[in-house]
């Protein structure tokens, strides 16, 4: 379970990262889901998430 400050930081992070040109909406949605449970994701999951959701955008 994240503390209030940690949760605020995460919310501000999602807000800002969603505006970054390089990051697709799908990646942002995936990141939100990955952190939603309160349990932290593994780096491998995030690597996969980015790879899966940037494929179409990038090729």
């Amino acid at each position: 379970m994240l503390s209030a400050v940690e949760a605020n930081i995460l919310a501000a992070f999602f807000e800002r990262v969603s505006k970054a040109e390089e990051v697709s909406d799908d990646v942002v949605i995936g990141l939100r889901r990955a952190f939603a449970s309160g349990k932290l994701p593994k780096p491998e999951q995030l690597v996969q998430l980015i790879a899966d959701n940037n494929g179409e955008l990038l090729t």
Binding site: I9, F13, R16, V17, A20, E22, V23, S24, V27, L31, L46, V47, I50, A51, N54, G55, L57, L58, T59
Partner: peptide, 16 residues
Amino acid sequence: KKAAAQAVARVVYETY
């Protein structure tokens, strides 16, 4: 693809 994924991961990390 990998370069773009790297760019995304970098932006994600730096933004956080």
